[in-house]
Amino acid sequence: MKKIIFASIAAFAVIVSGCATKNTSVSSSSSVDGSKGSGSSDQFENVSSLNSIQNVYFDFDKFNIRKDMQGVIADNAAIFNKEAANAAIVVEGNCDEWGTDEYNQALGLKRAKAVKESLVAQGVSADRISVKSYGETNPVCTERTKSCDAQNRRAEFKITK
């Protein structure tokens, strides 16, 4: 009986010690808040330009770049080609909550890839851009409204030196 209790306690200790708390803090040099990306002043010369990087928004169940987002792509590409010319860029695709987890993960990746292709067409080196999908797991709005869903259908940018 003592061996069973000791084995149970030992197993519990191993399980508990393996479950570390996940660090969810994000440094200011790589965070994206609301609708704009950001950089830190110690990494880039013109931080105000980096703060003007805008998200790209998508229609429901779509991954093509909307006509009203073409200017956003062009503006972001200009910043990536000038003020952040040596930076690595991560394009993060996001979705609203509609659809399965697997479907939204794939849709988020398609959105990120579409943005990458558009940036490359604007002269940003493809080697500097990586893509990532958060699917529906990274909402900026959690209300159950159409306008909230529209905010979650986006691509965000993180830049690092």
Rank of each mutant, 00 (worst) to 15 (best):
R66F: 02
S25W: 05
S49G: 10
K22G: 00
S30K: 12
S31N: 10
L50V: 06
C19T: 12
Q54K: 15
S17Q: 08
F58K: 03
F60C: 00
S52C: 07
N51Y: 14
S30Q: 08
A74C: 02
N46E: 07
V32F: 14
G34P: 00
S38E: 12
T24C: 08
S49A: 15
Q54R: 14
D33L: 14
V14Y: 04
D61S: 11
N64Y: 09
I65M: 02
M69Q: 15
S28T: 10
S31C: 08
I15H: 00
S27Y: 02
Q43I: 08
V56P: 00
G18A: 14
K22M: 11
C19D: 00
I73G: 01
S27W: 00
K67Q: 10
S41V: 14
F58D: 03
D33F: 12
D33A: 12
N64F: 04
F58Y: 12
G18C: 10
S35H: 10
N64H: 06
K62V: 06
C19K: 11
I73N: 01
Q54T: 10
F60W: 13
A74I: 02
V14C: 13
G37V: 04
S48R: 12
I73L: 03
V47A: 09
Y57R: 05
Q70C: 00
V26A: 09
S40Q: 07
V26T: 12
S30E: 09
G71Y: 01
S49C: 09
D61N: 15
S49R: 13
V72A: 05
